[in-house]
């Protein structure tokens, strides 16, 4: 079953690669025009197009790229001639670092808040946690980011922009990346917290919980030992979805905090018609989604004996 899921994932990636290629073909203008900008003349355009191989037909360019990508070689950036793997490497690391940092803050917070909210359903705490999380998710990311800059950066507690390079120490990284990570935490917490709460509450009406309660177990033990294991599948799925979002959807936060991640690279590449980079980044994003959902499916299966030992 897991093998089938894997095969489906790879098939999905292939289809995505076709769509990515087709979509970039539809963009107006071309790379040569974009590089030369206002300085483009028919002559220089023709010379540059020739150099960049933009005159080949689309299927040829697609095949060249895909066969390269399969061997781990994404080719060189059309606009500055650097290898794409080098271009993406550091930024992918930054993006994953920020995503994990935000997840390390957000996942425990939302699980604890969600469990406590389920435990003390309809209490002041439950309402406050819900209202707070919903408020945070309702504001646009850039607004949350600017509010944090106003409160925490302009007062000198944390830097307003992230200036990291490969030699930055881990401790400095944690410190400098705190504001973007906190912004993302505020944005994703509500979703995970409310799913945790809903999944647990859903189970609390089940006969076996009733049984546990009749046995005289403490409410905390009922939730942690009896309800939570059965609620894990939906929670894991929601966490995977949010992790994928943290990797692929944080352009706004990157821009506000000047964070050199993949999102900004993608935006730059699209607006500059650097199709090779667009394709590579889009493929990585698609890969992240497929892989995280795959992991979520596998974990849900493992936590559910009925799925594990199906006849």
């Amino acid at each position: 079953m897991i093998a089938l899921r894997l095969a489906l994932g790879i098939g999905l990636l292939f289809i995505v690669s076709l769509i990515i290629f087709g979509a970039t073909e539809l963009l107006p203008g071309d790379l040569a025009q974009q590089i030369l900008g206002q300085g483009a003349t028919p002559e220089t355009l023709a010379a540059l197009r020739e150099q960049l191989g933009l005159n080949d037909p689309a299927p040829v360019r697609y095949w060249n790229w895909l066969s390269g990508a399969l061997t781990g070689d994404f080719g060189v950036s059309l606009s500055n001639g650097r290898p794409i793997s080098e271009l993406i490497g550091a930024r992918l690391g930054n993006t994953v670092f920020l995503a994990l940092y935000a997840a390390a803050l957000a996942v425990p917070i939302s699980l604890i808040l969600g469990i406590l909210a389920a435990l003390w359903r309809n209490s002041i705490f439950d309402r406050a946690a819900n209202a707070g999380a919903l408020t945070a998710i309702s504001f646009p990311e850039f607004f949350v980011a600017y509010i944090l800059v106003l409160w925490l950066a302009q007062t000198g507690l944390f830097p307003s922009m992230v200036r990291i390079n490969p030699t930055t120490t881990f401790g400095d990284r944690i410190y400098m990346t705190f504001l973007p990570a906190l912004t993302l935490t505020l944005v994703v917490t509500a979703h995970m917290m409310r799913m945790t709460r809903a999944a647990i509450i859903n189970l609390m009406a089940s006969p076996y919980i009733e049984m546990a309660r009749l046995k005289g177990l403490s409410p905390l033990r009922i939730v942690l030992r009896h309800a939570l294991p059965n609620a894990l599948a939906p929670i894991i799925n929601v966490i995977a979805l949010n992790l994928a979002y943290l990797i692929t959807g944080v352009v706004v936060v990157e821009v506000v905090f000047v964070y050199p991640g993949l999102g900004q690279l993608m935006v730059d590449a699209v607006s500059n018609r650097d199709i090779a980079v667009v394709q590579a980044v889009a493929l990585i994003f698609a890969g992240a989604y497929v892989a995280l959902n795959l992991i979520a499916d596998v974990l849900s299966t493992i936590t559910n004996p009925r799925l594990m030992h199906r006849r």
Partner: peptide, 13 residues
């Protein structure tokens, strides 16, 4: 981002 640029100046970055 213009606002980020302004913030960077105000916070001494």
């Amino acid at each position: 981002d213009p606002a980020a640029r302004l913030n960077a100046l105000i916070t001494g970055e």
